[in-house]
């Protein structure tokens, strides 16, 4: 069976969007050389200077992409590691996210930011973070976190076609994960997916942690515990309806992500579930995430930092035993 990788799917989606729409542009460090992971491989050869290398000037490059978007182009800017998005935060937060609102609707900013997130590569505290909660907090930004190759392609295609800024947060550990080949199709922003149905507990997981959640569900199924795994796919807009309808059936909810637990997206989701479906809950929502520390390099320390399947299994067993 033919296979594709997550990074290959991103590369294919970028090529397809460049072919489909003459206003699409790509810019970022090393993009004309294919980028460090190959997301933009061979694109410069086909699309010339529509794929533009930039100096290591993240803040200005984000501003340039925003200025292109305000003038009618559809730029896809690559921030190599999400850790470096902090350098570009002023432009993203103060200009791109606010242009439409501050102009009273005169402007639209069809900007896409692609960036890679996540630990597990022993790269240390400045190349491993999960900063999605910072972005979700900013009105005016959409935030996508694809967990599969099909979603990496599909969410990116939708992001390019959106008229407002979208940050697509990819996961480094997923880049070379293989999936059966598929026909790329846009995945709507704000559409969660039930990755595995189950009756006993709702497990909401994002990005790489979706695969940990599925492994945990498989493990628990051997003991007759049926876990429903939901992948929101975009944190903003959030398909809360799919999550709530699951919680109303299972009466229990766990949210698991790679980011630091404190102030993380899980806190927002737990709050929303308790606000909207308190009467359906048999127990408080459980949040799983990283400790409030920078990401360490040392292999055993980094392994302990990440939420993996065994931790999810343990949390769900405790929840069902009433000791959560």
């Amino acid at each position: 069976m033919a296979e594709t990788t997550y990074i290959g799917a991103i590369n294919g989606a970028l090529a397809a969007e460049l072919r489909r729409d003459a206003t699409v542009r790509i810019l970022g460090e090393d993009v004309a050389e294919g980028g460090p992971f190959g997301a933009t491989k061979d694109l410069a050869a086909e699309f010339g200077d529509r794929v533009r290398d930039t100096p290591i000037s993240e803040s200005t490059v984000m501003g340039i992409a925003t200025g292109m978007a305000l003038a009618g182009l559809r730029p896809v800017v690559e921030i190599m590691f999400i850790d470096f998005i902090t350098l570009a935060f002023d432009q993203l937060v103060n200009q791109a996210a606010k242009a439409r609102y501050m102009s009273g609707g005169q402007l639209r900013c069809p900007l896409v930011v692609r960036t890679s997130s996540g630990a597990g590569t022993r790269s240390g505290a400045q190349h491993s973070q999960s900063l999605e909660a910072l972005l979700v907090h900013v009105p005016g930004l959409a935030v996508a976190m694809p967990a599969t190759a099909a979603d990496a392609a599909g969410l990116l295609m939708s992001a390019v076609r959106a008229d407002d800024p979208v940050v697509v947060i990819e996961n480094k550990e997923l880049y070379f994960r293989k999936e059966p080949s598929f026909d790329p199709a846009p995945v709507p922003l704000g559409s969660a997916l039930v990755r595995r149905p189950g009756r006993d507990v709702t497990l909401v997981a994002t990005s790489r942690t979706v695969h940990e959640a599925l492994a945990a569900a498989e493990d628990l199924a051997r003991d007759g515990i049926e876990v429903e795994v939901i992948d929101p796919r975009t944190l903003q807009p959030l398909d809360l309806g799919t999550i709530l309808s699951s919680v109303r059936r299972t009466h229990r909810c766990v949210v698991a992500h790679e980011a630091v637990r404190r102030g993380g997206f899980g806190a927002e989701l737990a709050s929303l579930v308790q606000e909207e479906a308190f009467d359906a809950l048999d127990a408080p929502v459980v949040r799983l995430g990283a400790p409030a520390t920078p990401v360490p390099v040392s292999p055993p320390l980094e392994d302990a930092y990440l939420v993996r399947a065994p931790q999810i299994v343990s949390a769900i067993r405790s929840l069902l035993n009433g000791s959560a």
Partner: peptide
Amino acid sequence: VDVAHGVLEATGVVGGTIPLALGTALAL
């Protein structure tokens, strides 16, 4: 902002519109 008269943004962040002008120049 007055798009009809070609004013795309003014900003309260000092220096913040300089890169925007570069991006718009590239698009133009």
